[in-house]
Computed example of a mutant assay.
Amino acid sequence: MSTPDTADELTRTPPTLDDYLHLRTTSGLSPKSPAQGAGALTGSWCWSVVRRDGRAVAMGRVIGDGGWYFHVADMATLPEDQGRGLGRRVLADLIAQIEAAAPEGAYVTLLADEPGRRLYESAGFVETAPESLGMRLAPSARGHTRPPPLVVGEKHATTPGAAMSNHTIVIPTPDLAAATAFSRVAWGAEPHTPRRPTTSASTSTARRSASTRTASGTR
């Protein structure tokens, strides 16, 4: 392995948009649009970028909540600079930033493409299978997984447990807590237990009960 160039500078600021897009495509990652790249530059938790003469030659970033979940992404090095240890420097610096700022017990993940697997294993990453498998939303499924719209109105268009379709669900106005609970039941988030009609004297008790069920099912 060649040693890094003495002119290489490890920084923790994002690359320029042009450098980001160029590094992704030339290193073998999928190309992204300028709009996608702009979101990556501003929406990441931290960056580690190797620069030479002001130009990014290797990079990586972390997406995370700052508390317990962190995902390493966009590990990329220019082809002519691969095999010189730049990716290892970037990965080590990203992990160091997580360890310095995150509370104990941080969960750090990444998707290991074939070229980088030996590097990730040497840094301490292990496969999660068979306990868990990485999954992504297929493009063909997008737009078909949203719950039906919930509209507060004056009548029922359907009832809990009924077959769902693409029409609007209308819930009586007075009981908003029950409407929220129904939305979760209709979309499959909770099993439906039929409720007996309540009298006006027990309306407040029914509202508190529905609110309690909804809150306990939304951790």
Rank of each mutant, 00 (worst) to 15 (best):
G134M: 07
I98M: 05
A100L: 07
L78Y: 11
Q97G: 02
R88Y: 07
A112T: 07
Q97L: 02
P103K: 05
S122N: 11
T109S: 09
A138T: 13
Q82E: 08
P115W: 07
D93R: 09
Y120T: 05
S132F: 13
E99D: 14
R84W: 04
L137Q: 06
V90G: 00
A102L: 01
A100K: 09
Y107G: 03
G105K: 06
S122D: 12
L86Y: 02
A96Y: 05
G85E: 02
A123Q: 12
P147N: 03
A101F: 07
G124D: 03
A129N: 07
D113Q: 14
D81I: 09
R146K: 13
D113C: 11
P103G: 07
E99H: 12
A129C: 06
Q97H: 06
L94D: 02
R146G: 13
I95Y: 07
A106C: 04
P79D: 03
V90N: 00
T128V: 12
R136G: 15
A106Y: 00
L110C: 02
T128H: 05
G143A: 03
A96K: 04
R88T: 07
T128N: 06
G153F: 09
E114S: 09
P79F: 03
L133A: 15
L133R: 15
V151H: 14
E99L: 10
L94M: 10
A106D: 03
V126T: 14
G153L: 07
D113T: 15
G116Y: 10
R142Q: 11
T145C: 15
E131G: 09
H144A: 12
R146M: 14
L86P: 00
R118Y: 12
D81A: 12
A100I: 06
L86E: 02
A100T: 08
P103M: 05
P115Y: 13
T77K: 02
F125V: 04
D113N: 14
D113Y: 13
S122R: 14
R84Q: 10
E99Q: 10
L86S: 00
S132I: 10
V151L: 11
A141V: 09
R84M: 08
L78Q: 05
G143L: 01
E99M: 08
V108M: 09
R136L: 11
M135H: 06
G153V: 07
D113L: 15
Y120Q: 08
A138Y: 14
A100N: 08
P130H: 02
G116V: 14
G85H: 03
A100F: 06
R117H: 12
M135L: 15
S122W: 08
P130E: 05
L111E: 10
E80M: 10
V152K: 12
L119R: 05
A101P: 04
P147A: 01
A100D: 11
Q82W: 05
L133Y: 15
D81G: 04
L111T: 12
V126W: 10
G143T: 01
L119P: 03
L133I: 13
D81E: 13
A129P: 06
